[in-house]
Design a binder for these strands. Structure first.
Length: 955
RNA sequence: GCCGAAGUGGCGGAAUAGGUAGACGCGCAGGACUUAAAAUCCUGUUCACAGUAAUGUGAGUGUGGGUUCGAUUCCCACCUUCGGUACCA
């Protein structure tokens, strides 16, 4: 096409000479690497021959399960940042397969949930349609990169054959409680039998129940009462409590979906609101989620995030009597040693005792404060930490000194943590110190070591004072002694508290799994298993209602059942489908069970799980929790779903910033002004990165691509318009996205695969830049022309390889296999480059070398290697060609050129046999001219020889 | 504040059971081919100083110390950047 354009523009005499000149070149070009034809051909081959489809039945072959976190198919399609992890896992998958493993490498779509639904609402198109379109587009984009996903595994969490089982698992959670004695989920029917026989006094279970009852009580309960008691034990339960309500999204959100008081998605403000909700009792599994971390291979930062999120803290729960009242106040503390420094009490504004404790004199003040505090948004509360509070008028009695302690209400005490009440020890807690200072409450030092005149002393280091029977003890000893004393007097107990809350599992949104329940007379009845799935009704108007209720409420026909029952209308959160999808890939079409145990016993756990660090707490905790539960009920055998987890770094975008005058439509080249001018006189405008190369804007492309046709440009003295560049998240909104399909078209999929690996370590974040991709193009071109000459003839010869050639090859095999195992893909690329360069330079065309090389390169550049494998006579796909093993025999060296250091500085190099003795080395060194020059006549004190590394002469 | 990760040429980054710092690639400079350009190939490229040059000398992996024959790698203190998290008692 390019040539023909030139032809038309040329005048006839030119035309002829150009044509003559072109001919030999044309021929040369024919013998060059053309990625388009090759890559298309092999993609088609793989598809038609079903190369990537494997038998999912258990076999004798060792298995390897390599999994990517599946994407939610957003409307913007993939950008070059997404495939980074997919390329890495594909290399692993192809490598392991060639190493003889039975490899499962699936891909699917996390299609339900908020992002997909928001996109649909913005477009005004039904989410079922947008999801379908987007998933299709993702799949096409992924196919371009040559990923070896098994097409028979592909699943969507929004398919009813899939979400049937999401609902089924939810019902199992509903049907079980957690027994703390056996540390295991048990059927709720067992619990009913116990209640029937002996009440709940002896039950040690994970529960929100506070009240104790006897067998007789149980029998007297109404059916509603019985159900509401059981709800307090179920692992999936319905409750009424404070939740994160986001009015803009029209739904409640889980704690991990709220960041800085705003919704993670969209950044809308979030309020606290009391609402009925479905909740999962993940806290029952807190300890197992924590201890399981020691058995898996996750990065330190992920383990740390999860540990922090679970937030286990050990301490004591202490009951305080209230002066003149029968009620008691329960508090939780990790510092019972400081109890003699306790000078007042604080309860949260939402605390149950607020009303009881408020005296008539304080009533108005308390009501005003509580109302103010409750209406305060999370955001305000977090950004403004100055202490506020109000006195209730009541006093608690110190359990040891008998002192009267004023009870205050303050919003620095959170209802969601511990008991929602604290014993305030201002001398040894920063928050209490600030509060006491502000409201003139006494500060009493009980641990020596700080200066409480100026600040609270919080270190757990010092000797107890002013503390009766624990005086003179260390903090650690005092904590233990005090806990003993509390238990001894029966005023409290040792207590472990978790920061992690039970997770709210209902959303007032359309695009999710319907929660499979029917309601009648206030009782929630699970839908029968044989009625699953409860299908999501098709609705024209699926938008949020704006009220705290699901849009499904409008599906009246669907909702009202003929037998007088009403369907639950809340749907499940996006995290539901992703909590177990890894169990479905290898048994996608099973209609009898969610995942056949025989198969999961073979395939689970996932050997390598790769994905973004943003799922460090949410998805990873939920899926670990579900796996543990499914193990408890005997449906899977693994305690942990992922053996090894790696987070790939983000590929950021490099945005191009142009400056437009604030008063006019004039853009000024960035090098023509200073930073102050940029800030004060100009607005930053993101330019589409496709218009910019090396910080210079192509003004013509801008004019063609923009709506802003009247823009004027002030160029610099080189007639260029320069932009500034900023590294930030790759996103449509910043016009800095790069489509992998464009890169594939221009440079090829193999090039993109290798280039993304070459950019740097997998786990590190790095900005995208196309500068440098040429190096990879040149490399692949060189590989091609090593096998195929300018006349499209194969170069390979039958001649036996030399010792040196075999050594280089086996060094490469060793390096590549070791580095792939370490996931160090970036270091593989230079090894390939050096090897090929060496072979080409030495004009080495030995089949003995070139055939194994193809297998080694194939995981990285599958299309090219398939092509060359076929041309060199390979009969099967390269996936079936075993990855070569290296042979130590080829790697043995007889001698080594040692760098010679004199006093730690390298001065020369001398070749020694690896068997040379210390004496031989020393005498050679003594005779060496260069060495003696540096010795300046002195005798060496010591000669250190490090085998195959270095020789250091110490003078 | 707390937790985690990371600081190496103009740039992306190599090298850590302590052993030649800067592999490989980009960029840049020079050269070959070409009437010319593109493409391709070759050479050089950490910095400073000296020399016409080959080369030589010194410094050098965020900063300051320490251990060692030898430190990018280990130890101590600090600085900076990024990510997570935060009134969690």
């Amino acid at each position: 096409m390019i040539y023909s354009e030139i032809f038309f523009k040329l005048k006839p005499p030119f035309f002829c000479c150009f044509f003559v000149l072109l001919c030999p070149k044309q021929k040369k070009i024919m013998g060059q690497y053309h990625h388009r034809g090759i890559e298309q051909k092999w993609r088609q081959y793989w598809r038609e021959k079903k190369t990537f489809i494997i038998d999912k039945n258990p076999s004798d072959k060792p298995k390897y399960y390599v999994l990517d976190m599946f994407p939610y198919p957003s409307g913007s399609g993939l950008h070059v940042g997404h495939p980074l992890g997919y390329i890495a896992t594909d290399i692993i998958a192809r490598y392991k397969r060639a190493k003889g493993f039975n490899v499962l490498h699936p891909m699917g779509f996390d299609a339900f949930g908020l992002p997909a639904e928001q996109y649909a609402i913005e477009r005004g198109v039904h989410p079922a349609i947008t999801t379908e379109e987007n998933a299709k587009r993702y799949w096409e984009q992924m196919s371009l990169l040559g990923f070896s996903y098994d097409p028979d595994c592909v699943l969507r969490t929004s398919d009813k054959d899939y979400y049937k089982w999401t609902q089924w698992i939810f019902l199992q959670l509903f049907g079980h409680y957690y027994c703390n004695d056996t540390q295991q989920a048990r059927p709720i029917t067992e619990l009913e039998q116990v209640f029937e026989a002996e009440g709940n006094q002896q039950i040690n279970a994970a529960t929100s129940a506070k009240d104790k009852f006897s067998a007789a009580d149980w029998k007297n309960f109404t059916p509603q009462e019985k159900q509401s008691v059981l709800m307090q034990y179920r692992l999936a339960y319905h409750s009424f409590g404070y939740v994160n309500w986001c009015p803009a999204l029209g739904t409640v959100l889980a704690n991990d979906e709220v960041k800085d008081g705003k919704s993670e998605r969209g950044g809308h403000p979030v309020e606290r609101r009391k609402m009925p909700q479905w909740v999962l009792r993940i806290t029952a599994y807190a300890d197992r989620l924590l201890s399981g971390l020691n058995t898996v291979d996750f990065s330190e930062s992920i383990k740390a995030s999860q540990t922090n999120w679970i937030g286990k803290s050990e301490g004591g729960q202490i009951r305080y009597a209230i002066e003149g009242k029968s009620e008691t106040l329960e508090i939780f503390t990790t510092r019972p040693d400081t109890i003699f420094g306790n000078t007042y009490m604080v309860i949260a504004p939402e605390h149950d005792l607020v009303e009881t404790l408020t005296t008539p004199e304080q009533k108005t003040e308390v009501e005003t404060y509580v109302k103010w505090a409750k209406n305060r948004s999370e955001r305000e509360r977090q950004s403004d930490t100055t202490k506020t509070g109000v006195f209730t008028g009541s006093y608690a009695i110190h359990p040891f000194s008998g002192e009267k302690l004023p009870v205050w209400i303050a919003d620095y005490v959170l209802i969601g943590y511990g008991t929602g009440a604290i014993m305030a020890v201002p001398a040894h807690d920063e928050r209490d110190y600030e509060f006491a200072g502000k409201f003139g409450l006494p500060v009493r030092e009980v641990v020596q070591g700080g200066n409480i005149e100026t600040e609270a002393y919080v270190a757990k280091d010092g000797i107890l004072t002013n503390s009766d029977f624990i005086n003179g003890m260390t903090v650690a000893k005092a904590i233990d002694t005090m806990l003993e004393a509390i238990e001894g007097r029966g005023i409290g107990k040792r207590q472990i508290t978790y920061r992690m809350r039970d997770v709210i599992w209902s959303r007032q949104r359309y695009w999710g799994e319907p929660t499979p329940f029917k309601i009648k007379d206030g009782i929630y009845y699970p839908v029968n298993e044989d009625e699953l799935p409860v299908e999501l009704p098709e609705m024209e108007d699926f938008k949020p209602t704006g009220r705290p209720e699901s849009p499904l409420i409008k599906a009246t026909e669907w909702r009202h059942l003929p037998d007088g029952f009403e369907r639950e209308t809340n749907t499940m959160p996006g995290a539901a489908g992703s909590s177990w999808y890894f169990l479905r890939y290898f048994d996608r079409d099973n209609t009898m069970t969610f995942s056949e145990k025989k198969k999961s016993d073979y395939w689970m756990p996932v050997d390598l799980y790769l994905g973004g660090a943003e799922h460090a707490v949410g998805h990873l905790l939920y899926s670990r929790f579900w796996t543990k539960f499914l193990k408890d009920i005997g449906k899977v055998s693994v305690e942990e779903p992922y053996k090894k987890l790696v987070n790939q770094g983000m590929i950021q975008g490099t945005s191009a910033i142009a400056y437009r005058h604030k008063e006019s439509n004039r853009f000024v080249s960035a090098d023509l002004m200073n930073d102050t001018e940029k800030e004060t006189l100009y607005s930053d405008i993101h330019m589409d990165v496709r218009w910019v190369r090396a910080n210079v804007l192509d003004v013509e492309k801008f004019r063609k691509g923009t709506q802003n046709k009247d823009a004027e440009f002030t160029l610099n003295d080189k007639n260029e318009f320069r932009t500034d560049s900023v590294v930030e998240k790759m996103s449509k909104r910043y016009f800095n996205t790069v489509d992998p399909a464009d890169v594939c078209e221009e440079y090829g999929a193999d090039t993109l695969r290798i280039y993304e690996m070459f950019l740097g370590p997998l786990e590190m974040s790095k900005p995208w830049s196309t500068e440098g991709i040429e190096g990879v193009v040149r490399f692949l071109r060189r590989v091609y022309s090593w096998y195929v000459d300018d006349n499209e003839q194969l170069t390979l010869t039958e001649e036996p390889a030399t010792k040196e050639e075999l050594k280089s090859l086996h060094k490469l095999i060793k390096k590549i296999s070791e580095d792939i195992e370490k996931l160090s893909f970036n270091t593989c690329v230079p090894a390939f480059m050096v090897f090929v360069k060496e072979m080409v330079e030495n004009k080495s065309f030995k089949k003995e070398i070139m055939l194994p090389f193809l297998s080694v390169l194939a995981p990285f550049a599958p299309h090219l290697c398939e092509e060359l494998n076929e041309r060199t006579g390979g009969s099967s796909t390269i996936l079936e060609v075993p990855f070569p093993d290296y042979d130590e025999a080829h790697l043995i060296e007889a001698e080594f050129e040692y760098p010679i250091q004199i006093n730690g500085k390298v001065r020369t190099k001398i070749l020694f046999s690896l068997t040379a003795t210390q004496e031989e080395v020393e005498s050679t060194l003594a005779a060496d001219k260069e060495v003696s020059r540096w010795l300046e006549g002195k005798t060496p004190k010591k000669v250190i020889i490090v085998n195959k590394r270095i020789i250091n002469v110490v003078v």
